[in-house]
Write a protein that binds this DNA or RNA. Structure first.
Lengths: 252, 252
DNA sequence: TGTGTGGATACTGTATACATTGGGTCGGAG
DNA sequence: CTCCGACCCAATGTATACAGTATCCACACA
């Protein structure tokens, strides 16, 4: 007996809205590493006061999507060390997470959303649409994550996926890499359909390994000084919109 | 070449201080599950305005140490499901983290802080001091975590350890359990000294398994209705300090 | 006596005013 | 010409005022 009057969609607080807006901004890679995010500026751009903006910035910073540069917040410039660290986390949690849903995905209607996302990914690949491919990729992850029973595990996976998603445009622009990624997703989905958790975890591990390899290779072409492991991976490649100069030296 | 002049400890903002104060409160188990934390009340208790308090509460909530109950925040009552979820995370990350430092801990002076903490733990055990034991336990973890090169991994470990630490007093009050814990720490330290990462990881895994088993057993005695997996593990066992009545019926 | 409605109250969400600090620039002296 | 210092501005940290809303209690009516 589903209640016919679903509770009124009270638009969540402004802080929440601002948070999601900024997070989407970061995930889509619209922002530039080193670009400072200032309360007043964002507040007037979004037509709210500083308070919700401040709240959202703090929250993003506590999740690592922003770093504190002295007083304000900047988009972090990921170093090769950072990428290694992030993938170390992902290697730990994502295979385990995918393993935990393999029991469920034997059932076709449970697999439904995953296979829809996979189909969307394949369509985007066929169309050669890098942007749609990236989005479908996000949907695929969201689809299988929705089945993971451990919400804390979901949270970790989402968090560190988002960290990479921000700079994923660098690799997914290459059609060849897209082919590899799609193959990985296909294999993961197949193992899920078979209900074999260990095989799905293994597929995920190899998928991650491919993604990491591709990423480092792609970056190696752009930034060949990364052997030292301390150079920022993507320096601003277009002029910063505002008059702020992004200082390269990081305070940490 | 560690910088000899560590940056002067400028007393961070009030928000930071309030955050650490509240976090310590939660970690020491002073608070009671279901107890609402209200901005005005905390603000006047600590002599600051609502703004820093609000900031700290949001931050704690984003880390899962508090949950949003309608509008305000309450100390979460961990269910058996929660404990299972938390330990699933810990099983994933802590063995990996300890493995990553085994290369370093061959050197005695690197092991120094760990063995100091271990010695403190042994002393507390001999003295039968449960409180000191718990603190030394925290120090032990802090000591080895300080060596983990991946800061994001450190963050995750700290976060989910703290979740358990809040209710750890339940198990560490038992001398027998303390004996088991101390044996686990001894073994971990020994494997670290040998520089055997895999063995250290295994030791950690078994240590965690023991801790989890002890915890569930201890709780099973206290709260025998937990078989359903949805009952709060520790209900308020003493009157709430202030005049607030903790409403048992939660709005959700 | 029970239920429903209305008001009062207390809390959070948001905005804004004020304080403080850090950086940048301009001017003067060596 | 360069370097140092002081002032100014801008951005954040903090406090507080205001608004909205949910909860609780009391009172009235069935």
């Amino acid at each position: 007996m589903v209640p016919l009057l679903k509770p009124v969609e009270r638009s969540a607080g402004l802080g929440e809205q601002v948070y999601h807006k900024l997070r989407a901004l970061l995930r889509n890679g619209v922002t530039v590493a080193g670009q400072p995010l200032q309360e007043v500026q964002l507040a007037e751009q979004m037509g709210v006061s500083r308070t919700p903006v401040r709240e959202a910035l703090k929250r993003l910073a506590s999740e690592g999507l922003l770093v504190s540069d002295g007083r304000s917040f900047v988009v972090p410039a990921l170093t090769l060390d950072d990428v290694n660290d992030i993938y170390e986390i992902r290697f730990l949690v994502e295979p385990a997470a995918i393993r935990s849903i393999a029991k469920l995905t034997r059932s076709p209607q449970v697999r439904r959303s995953i296979e829809d996302a996979l189909a969307a990914t394949a369509r985007a690949h066929k169309a050669g649409d890098a942007e749609a491919f990236r989005e479908a990729n996000v949907c695929f992850r969201a689809a299988w994550l929705a089945l993971v029973p451990n919400p804390r595990l979901v949270r970790i996976v989402e968090q560190y996926s988002d960290h990479m998603q921000r700079i994923r445009a660098l690799t997914l622009g290459d059609p060849e890499i897209r082919t590899t990624v799609l193959r990985g997703l296909n294999r993961i989905t197949a193992e899920l359909a078979a209900g074999d958790g260990d095989a799905a975890a293994l597929a995920m591990r190899e998928h991650l390994a491919e993604a990491k390899r591709a990423f480092i290779a792609a970056v190696g072409l752009t930034d060949n000084a990364s052997a030292a492991g301390a150079s920022p991976l993507h320096t601003p490649n277009r002029p910063v919109p505002d008059g702020n100069r992004p200082k390269e030296g990081r305070a940490r």
